[in-house]
Each structure stands twice: as C-alpha cells, then as structure tokens.
Nucleic acid binder design. Sequence first.
RNA 1: GCGGCAUUGGCGGAAUUGGUAGACGCGCUAGACUUAGGAUCUAGUUCUUAACGGAGUGAAGGUUCGAUUCCUUUAUGCCGCACCA
Length: 935
Amino acid sequence: MDYNFSDIERKWQAAWEEAGTYKVSNESDKPHFYVLDMFPYPSGAGLHVGHPLGYIASDIYSRYKRLNGFNVLHPMGFDSYGLPAEQYAIQTGQHPEKTTMENIERYIQQLRKIGFCYDWDREIKTCDPSFYQWTQWAFVQMFHSYYDTALQKAQPISKLIAKWEANDPKWNTLSEEEKQARLMNYRIAYLADTKVNWCPELGCVLANDEVSEGLSVRGGYPVEQRVMRQWCLRVSAYAGRLLDGLNKIDWTDSLKETQRNWIGRSEGAEMQFAIKGQDEPFTIFTTRADTIYGVTFMVLAPESEYVARVVTEEQKEEVEAYLQMVKNRTERERIADRKVTGVFTGSYAINPLTNAEIPIYISDYVLSGYGTGAIMAVPAHDSRDYAFAKHFNLPIVPLIEGADVSEASFDAKEGIMMNSGILNGLEVQDAIAKMKEYITNTGIGRVKVNYRLRDAVFSRQRYWGEPFPIYYKNGMPYTLPEECLPLLLPEVTDFKPTATGEPPLGNAEQWAWDEANKCVVSKSLIDSEHIFPLELCTMPGFAGSSAYYLRYMDNHNNQALVDPKVNQYWKQVDLYLGGSEHATGHLIYSRFWNKFLYDLGYICEDEPFRKLINQGMIQGRSNFVYRLVGSQNTYISHGLINTPEYEGKVQPIHVNVNIVSNDVLDIEAFKAWMPEYKDAEFVLENGKYICGWAVEKMSKSMFNVVNPDDVVAKYGADTLRLYEMFLGPLEMSKPWDTNGIDGVHRFLRKWWNMFESLSNDEPTAEELRSLHKLIKKITWDIENFSFNTSIPAFMIAQSELQALKCNKVTILKTFAILLAPYAPHIAEEAYQLCQLRIMNEELRNDESKIQNSKLESVNDALWPICNEAYLVESTQKYPVQFNGKVRFTIEVAKDTPREEVEKIVMSHELTAKQLNGAAPKKVIVVPGRIVNIVM
RNA sequence: GCGGCAUUGGCGGAAUUGGUAGACGCGCUAGACUUAGGAUCUAGUUCUUAACGGAGUGAAGGUUCGAUUCCUUUAUGCCGCACCA
C-alpha cells in the first residue's frame, strides 16, 4: 500500500470544502475559542516556506480545540492596502488593484494546498469597500470623540460642547471656525501641523514605528523632518491604559517589555523657572528634582515656543543662524553626527531654590516633543549635560558625596546628597521624594508623569489606501454622514506618489462632495457653498489592520462593524500568532483602536488579544559552489576547499538551493540552471559535489527561497506541516533546512503502512501503554505550544507499535485522531480506513447497519483522554546511587511508596556491604527512579 | 548606554517539577537486500582510551546528596529601545 499523498490530500481538501467541514457558526452551545493569525500582506513574491510556520501552529491548535469540543473561529484574510502592495504595483507598472487581487489569488491557492481549517466564508480584504467602510466608520467615531482625562475614557465630543455651552461664556461668543479650531485640540482623530517623518522617495509621511535610524523601514530610504498639516490619532491619551493593560494579558515578557519601552512612562516633576527681567516663568520637566542645586544652565529645544521669548537683541543673529543650521540637518545627519552644538540666548533663568542666575541655551539635544521641550541642566549627574558643559566651559557642581566628576558625569541614582541645601545627607531616592513634596507645597512645580508614546500620524500622500470620509468647508474638515459610507476610492489617471507631497487623489476627476445630495461629484463643480473638496490623503497601512479581528466575527454584517450579540459570544482573540516585528506598530495601534471602540460601548473587551505568541522568523539557508579562481568554469567540492591544493584559491558563489539536496549538488540541474554554467567542470569528493552553506535572510538574490508549493508537490502538505513544526521551537528563529525532511516523510510512510491490514482484535496492555503515553505527551505539547517535541513522540509510538506488530483498529484509530491536528489529510484517510474495517465486521453481523450509517470525519472525533492506569508498569527499577555513582539496582512493584523503597534499600544486603556497615543518614528516593544514599 | 532572549555532539534540537544529559531526526560508519541506489531494512555513532576508566551542557565561582535546570560574576551572539532629561 503506497502512501500516495497527492491523491489523499486532493481528495480530502475537496471533500472538506464540499461538506463545509470548517464553516463556523456564531450560534452554538459549545464553548467559543478564537485563534487568529496576523494576516499577510499579499506581496508579489508569493508565500515562501517561512510564512506558513505560524499558520501551521495556529492550525494545529485550532484543530486540537475543535476536537476538544470547542466552536473555533479560525479565519484568514489579507492586509491589502498600504505601502508594500502599492510599491509592488509601481515597480511592475500596473494598477495596484490588479496586482493586489492577483497576489491574493495566488496566496489563497498556496494556502489551500497546505490544508488549513480556515472558514473561507469569513475571508476579509482591507481594500474591499465592505471592509474599509468600517475603517472609515471608526475614523468618523474618533473624529467625534475626545478623551476625558477625568473619566480616563473616550467620550462623544457633544458632551464636551455641552459642557462648554453651559460653563464657558467665551465658547458661545466664538465663530463657527473658531469653535471647530478649538474642538480640533480635543478630537481623538484630529488635524494638526506636526513635525512628521517625510520620506521623499516614498512620497509620503511615515509613523514613528515605520522609521528606524533615520531610514524608512520599508525600502530603507532617507527620512527627513518636516512640518505638515496631517491627520493624527490621539494615541498618547491612551498611554497609561496601554501600559496598565499589559498586566492583564498573556503575552511574552519580551514583547510586553518592548511595548513598555515604546510607551516610555517616566515619573518626574515639572518645575517653573522665572526668567530674569520677565514676569512669565517657563516650565521644565525632570526626573531628578533632587539635583536642582546643581543646575548650572538651562537648555531649550530649537523648536521650543520659549525661544522667541528669551532671545536678546545681541544674540538674535547668532540664534537665527543656529536655528537655520538645525533646520537644514536631516534626522539621519543629526543621529550620525552627535557632536555638541548649541547657542546662548542672552537670557538668564532664576533658580527657585538658590535664586542663582543661570544662562539659558538652545541645543538640539533637547527634543521639543518630549516633556516641555526645556530642561534644567545638571552637568555633574547627566552625561549629555556634562558634554555640553565641557564644550561651552560651564561650571560643574557635584551633588553626591564621593562622586568624581572630573572625567565624566555620575548618572547613577544612588549615593548621599551634598551641596544641596535642604537635601544634604539624604539618599538620592529620598531626596527626589522630598524635593517633589517641597516644590508641590511651595508651588514651584508639580509631580508629573510623562510618556514617550506620541500621537500617530494618520495621513499618507498615497493612492492605495482608505480615503478619509472628510470634506472641507471654509478650510475646516467635516465628516461625511455615516450612511454615506463607504466612500469609495476613486479612479485616477496617475496613482504614483510625488516627491513634493501632492497626493495622487488630486488627480481624481470625481472627487468633491455635494453636501445637499450627499454624493460624490466632479471636482470641477466645487463652489464651496454646496460642493466641497474631499480630503486628498489616504489612511496608512495600520488603519485596516487595527480592528480586522472584530470583522471576522461578523464579516457579512452591513449594519455594524460587529453585531453586539456576536461580539458578546466571541469576545476577544484567545490566541494570536504573529511576528514580533509588529510589537511597536500594529500591536499598539490595534490595542488603542480596540480600547477606543470599547470606551464607546461598541465592543465588550478592553484588550483585543488575550494570549499572544510570536513565532520566530524562518531564515534562508544558502548553498554555495566554489569556483577555482583563474579557471573559467571549474568548481571544487566543499570538502576540498581547505586542502593545500585549493586553499585560498576558490571563490564562493550562491547556487539555487532547489537544485541541491542534503548539500549534494545536482550537477545536471546546475549545468542547465544558467547558460554560463553549461560547460562547468567539477572536482568531486566520493563522486559527489558537496556544497557549502550559510544562514542568510531568505531572498531571491541569495537563491535560497523555497516555495511551499514545491515542498507540497514533492512530499505532500502533511510532511510540510510536520516538518515545519519539527524544525525547532515555534518562538525561535531558525533557518529553513531541507536536510531532514526525508526523515519526517519516512515516518508518515511507515505510519501509513500500519493501516495495510487492520484487525478488530482487543489491544494488548503493551499497545495501550504506548498509545496512552502518546496521548499524554501530545496533549501536553499542544497545550504548551511545544509542537516540535510532538513529532519525535509520534515516531517513537509508531516504532513501538510496529515492533509489537500492532494492527488493532482501536489503537490506530485513536492514533489517527492524535495526528489529525498535525497531518490532517493522512489522518483523515487512515481514520476512514479504520471505520470501514469496523463496519465490515458489523456488516457481517447485521447488514442493515451499514446502510444507515455514514462515516464520521476525523474532524468530528473526540480528543482521547489519557488513562494513567495503562501507563503503570508492574515493576520499576531503581538505580541506587552512592557518592554520585550507580552502585546497584533494585526492583520493586510499581507504585511502591517512597518510604517502602527507602526501607528496602536500607535493608538491602548490598547496601550494608557497600557502606562498610555504617548507617546512612538518609535515603532519598526521587521520581526519576533514583535512590541516593546520604552518609 | 538601558532592557529582553539565547549558548548542549559533525548539524537541527530533546531533557515539561533540581533527579540516569545527548531523546527524535539529519549526517556519518558497518552490514543485509539489490544489475543499480539520492530506495528499503539492521546495528553503531558526545569526546577520550586498546581496555578498565576519565571528562563533558560558552567560561569561572556558589547553593545542593544531586545542577543543562537555581544564584553570582563573565564572555559571545541575536533582538528591541536609545540625546526621552
């Protein structure tokens, strides 16, 4: 009986689809469970073997939960709006809609072959109007909401207006435009002139998490700082809750830590410093209130609004020049070139405790976006202030006993205070507390918590994204009525981005809003009385991916994002799988988005993802051939390149890993691979050409991309699934190495052969023991996401049962259920064979039975429960150790209590001889079947 | 600089509660079958030693009858944040 995996897999994939096996209902008496994969960007390159790693793991878990009687929601969709999809379209010169749809189709084809238990009826695409209608809808809600800091939650902005109408006499005197301008400071989605990361190459602005070291994460293009009028989301209002929420979700420590880091909570104090000769003081933020006696100068950020107030006539020219210099430097230059720069403003501040006059400087090492954009500088205890003080020759006053500040500052928050008036003699931590209390009581300042988390810039000067449901009347934005959503993305003649920042939607002919008739009309009709211009920017990639998990619950609903009853049933994602690269982007934004919808009562859970697992990245494993330097086309096998004859004379060249098997080069395939290798000659070892290898990023240029389709064609989906899990722990990064896939495939073949001739006999005790050991192990593995250790367990059980010549239907049928989450196709086929065998028996007894019955799918089976009784052995061997060495072995009945074992050891004649008659202090019996004698 | 994770044979990795380190797979070695093998089966495979033994989980200490596992120091690698006052 051959294991014909391609027939089996094709047959069952078709059968499951026809039977609707994986359709999920929103109404069920079963307990619910929601397993979600981070949905992919459908890139043009298609899936490589790294992509399905997490999908396979979540599929195994979903199938396991399903077999345990849960109603499991396990959907898949496509994040199809945004930069990557559009960049691909531009590179290939096609319309993004066309390429996106083609790419999605290709992804679906590839995914279907692997046999996932997705409910494809729930598929979503973020670029589909029926989906982005709800992205736009959420934006409208954010526009009409503000964050109530007293209640710590979002509220309809109408409440704020009502409050002002009642309590703020000034409000009622404002014009419509003034009112709108004031409201803009409170809306969760707001329009503002902000400093943004502008990427000329991509022709659009980027969020902070899309920029790394002054380069765009996607494409690696330079990014500069620009002030632009942009839509923003008030994510920073949620900083405290985003931080606290981490404590009640089951995520890995490293991911929580990354988010804590990104949110950047910092407890300190705001203090007011008077400016000499002026009435109004200015405010600084510090975490080291205790160091106030060591302040020798003040520093303002170049963009600080205080700058204009403190610059004196004499210094004006110099300051102007400095500000101009700072403005012209890109973010990248500033990071690369960290030399100390700055300029004196001419003004002095007054130290509120010592009344000392201290000079005020401007320097770009102080950031305008954090705190108040102004600091008090304490060079003795802050390394940045120290560098500045050295450069400008400013005094350095040490405040901690024994701190040597002649070479470097003493930044540690420890030691005893000195030179510090009322703080002298205190420990630093106590001094901080005392100073906070002092400044609060005297009104010099107040305790303040600052967050590093910034608001998210939400506009993109791009075509391929959700249009904003916004039109402009007298320069102020207004939302489209909710019933007019979705606002469809218009056709344009040219969708390419521009380096100057003019959005491509400016090219759209039909792009104006008729307010009275509530419809989109030609922009030539704009009269600013009835017909108004629509917003030209589109939303960023993270817009569509922030609440997509809610839409899967109820994706056909055109009345609401999700029906409250349905949301009440599924609640939240129980298990979320994806890469850790989304830690500071998607996973912050979707938590924010979710909390916002929660505040407004649209959904029932405060946190979207209860448990989150990061699967590791699959790296590429490249292969090399070694060309003899100087020769045209001679290649040396890897084992010979370090021999005296060839050492230092070879040059490694990447070779396509798909023509290499177990590091052995397929020579004919190599010659046919590229014309230049047609006449290649080889120096072999043992008749083979062995390739070298290295772990690198999986990419086309390294010729190390492996397509899952090829693996499925060669070995079958079940082998691919098992092997991806077998590679190593789910959460670790590891290279894709095809050496070894044969071993896993062999296991399936051997397992399959056990079903050749089945018997209905009663299983033996030994067979049951093997099986129940396996049940226990597999159950533990899946519950603990230790999928890689299951495959060896399957192999061991298989070989044990084979050694026992086991062909019992009862055993093998249960084995099939255990294997079903990992290798569903072969398990289903084997399960059917078992049922047929049972039926044949029944048929012999009662022919009417078989006609009325239908074969049950392995998907509807019940997960077996381990019966510990089967695991018990009649006797157990205890190696007895003394001084760490095994001296002898005793054999006792299984389940003998420890004390009994101890007694037996104590009375054992060998013990006495071994111990020269001396009495042992104690005998330790441990579960590992070891007895240890302690003298 | 701060924070997180890792380090075990030729390779990927196992050891789940501190209890026989190296499961399982690959590779390799030998044998069987075979016209043939990139097929299948059997046995062996941490290092060292002729053997008895001895050593051994990045390194150095510690706790323990007993440490891959816990603690301290340290080295290396990967990841995240980084002029955040």
